[in-house]
């Protein structure tokens, strides 16, 4: 699954640390998600999307083979 969290952060002008604090996880979790090393739970995906005031599918997208 790919995501555009990095782009969303850039638009909003916030760091990974700020996003991590806002959704209640560590910065290394955000790094792992942005790099596609970790697929977040539905709950965390909803929290991230909610923080950017977007729908989950505007941020997360299935890849071929998922």
């Amino acid at each position: 699954m790919k995501n555009n969290i990095k782009v969303q952060r850039a638009i909003k002008g916030i760091t990974q640390q700020v996003l991590a604090e806002q959704v209640g996880v560590s910065r290394q979790s955000i790094v792992a998600i942005e790099q596609g090393k970790y697929v977040p739970s539905t709950l965390l995906a909803l929290k991230i999307a909610g923080y950017f005031v977007k729908g989950v599918e505007e941020i997360f997208e299935l890849e071929e083979g998922d």
């Binding site: 209640g24 996880v25 560590s26 290394q28 979790s29 792992a32 970790y38 977040p40 709950l43 965390l44």
Partner: peptide, 11 residues
Amino acid sequence: REQVEDEFIHS
């Protein structure tokens, strides 16, 4: 627990 124990750490 880790300092920040979240779902990534659980995984």
